[in-house]
Amino acid sequence: VTTYKLVINGKTLKGETTTKAVDAETAEKAFKQYANDNGVDAVWTYDDATKTFTVTEMV
């Protein structure tokens, strides 16, 4: 189990959160659900070296 981080650069929601998951795909599903629940529709990137997902909402 690995800890993954999500950085949110949204128009109305900004911040960071983490989740523990067995792999990046599982973490991504959890983070996308979190973003969807909070109304963030954005572009996703992932950095495997830092285990960090970044979501940037387009203006």
Score class of each variant (00 low, 15 high):
residue 1 V to T: 10
residue 1 V to K: 08
residue 1 V to L: 13
residue 1 V to A: 09
residue 2 T to P: 07
residue 2 T to S: 11
residue 2 T to N: 10
residue 2 T to H: 13
residue 2 T to E: 12
residue 3 T to V: 12
residue 3 T to K: 05
residue 3 T to N: 05
residue 3 T to Y: 05
residue 4 Y to P: 01
residue 4 Y to I: 02
residue 5 K to H: 09
residue 5 K to E: 02
residue 5 K to A: 03
residue 5 K to Q: 04
residue 6 L to D: 02
residue 6 L to A: 03
residue 6 L to K: 00
residue 7 V to A: 03
residue 8 I to G: 04
residue 8 I to P: 01
residue 8 I to F: 13
residue 8 I to E: 02
residue 8 I to T: 04
residue 9 N to H: 10
residue 9 N to E: 06
residue 9 N to P: 05
residue 9 N to Y: 12
residue 10 G to D: 05
residue 11 K to Q: 14
residue 11 K to F: 14
residue 11 K to S: 14
residue 12 T to W: 15
residue 12 T to S: 11
residue 13 L to W: 15
residue 14 K to A: 10
residue 14 K to I: 10
residue 14 K to D: 07
residue 15 G to I: 15
residue 15 G to Q: 13
residue 15 G to E: 14
residue 15 G to F: 15
residue 16 E to M: 08
residue 16 E to G: 06
residue 16 E to W: 11
residue 16 E to N: 06
residue 17 T to K: 13
residue 17 T to R: 14
residue 17 T to Q: 09
residue 18 T to L: 07
residue 18 T to K: 05
residue 18 T to H: 11
residue 19 T to V: 13
residue 19 T to N: 03
residue 19 T to G: 03
residue 19 T to C: 14
residue 19 T to L: 12
residue 19 T to K: 05
residue 20 K to Y: 11
residue 20 K to F: 13
residue 20 K to T: 10
residue 20 K to E: 11
residue 20 K to S: 12
residue 20 K to W: 10
residue 21 A to S: 04
residue 21 A to H: 03
residue 21 A to W: 03
residue 21 A to I: 03
residue 22 V to C: 10
residue 22 V to N: 07
residue 22 V to F: 10
residue 22 V to H: 09
residue 23 D to M: 03
residue 23 D to R: 02
residue 23 D to E: 02
residue 23 D to Y: 02
residue 24 A to T: 07
residue 25 E to W: 09
residue 25 E to C: 08
residue 25 E to M: 11
residue 26 T to F: 03
residue 26 T to H: 09
residue 28 E to T: 03
residue 28 E to G: 07
residue 28 E to V: 06
residue 29 K to M: 09
residue 29 K to Y: 07
residue 29 K to D: 04
residue 29 K to V: 08
residue 29 K to P: 01
residue 30 A to Y: 14
residue 30 A to N: 07
residue 30 A to M: 10
residue 30 A to R: 11
residue 30 A to T: 13
residue 31 F to Q: 00
residue 31 F to R: 00
residue 31 F to S: 00
residue 32 K to Y: 04
residue 32 K to Q: 09
residue 32 K to I: 09
residue 33 Q to A: 10
residue 33 Q to L: 09
residue 33 Q to I: 10
residue 33 Q to W: 05
residue 34 Y to E: 03
residue 35 A to K: 04
residue 35 A to S: 05
residue 35 A to F: 14
residue 36 N to V: 14
residue 36 N to Q: 14
residue 36 N to S: 14
residue 36 N to G: 14
residue 37 D to I: 14
residue 38 N to P: 07
residue 39 G to K: 07
residue 39 G to R: 06
residue 40 V to W: 14
residue 40 V to E: 05
residue 41 D to M: 10
residue 41 D to N: 13
residue 41 D to F: 13
residue 42 A to F: 14
residue 42 A to K: 05
residue 42 A to E: 04
residue 43 V to E: 09
residue 44 W to D: 00
residue 44 W to C: 03
residue 44 W to Y: 02
residue 44 W to F: 13
residue 45 T to D: 09
residue 45 T to V: 09
residue 45 T to P: 00
residue 46 Y to C: 01
residue 46 Y to R: 00
residue 46 Y to N: 00
residue 47 D to L: 02
residue 47 D to K: 01
residue 47 D to M: 02
residue 47 D to F: 02
residue 47 D to S: 04
residue 47 D to T: 03
residue 47 D to W: 01
residue 48 D to C: 04
residue 48 D to K: 05
residue 48 D to R: 04
residue 49 A to I: 09
residue 49 A to S: 11
residue 49 A to R: 09
residue 49 A to T: 12
residue 50 T to Y: 03
residue 50 T to D: 03
residue 50 T to N: 07
residue 51 K to Y: 06
residue 51 K to Q: 07
residue 52 T to Y: 01
residue 52 T to A: 01
residue 52 T to C: 03
residue 52 T to K: 02
residue 53 F to R: 00
residue 53 F to N: 00
residue 54 T to I: 06
residue 54 T to W: 11
residue 54 T to A: 03
residue 54 T to V: 05
residue 55 V to K: 02
residue 56 T to C: 08
residue 56 T to I: 09
residue 56 T to E: 07
residue 56 T to G: 06
residue 56 T to D: 09
residue 56 T to W: 09
residue 57 E to F: 10
residue 57 E to H: 06
residue 57 E to I: 05
residue 57 E to N: 05
residue 57 E to M: 05
residue 58 M to C: 13
residue 58 M to V: 12
residue 58 M to D: 12
residue 58 M to G: 10
residue 59 V to Q: 10
residue 59 V to Y: 12
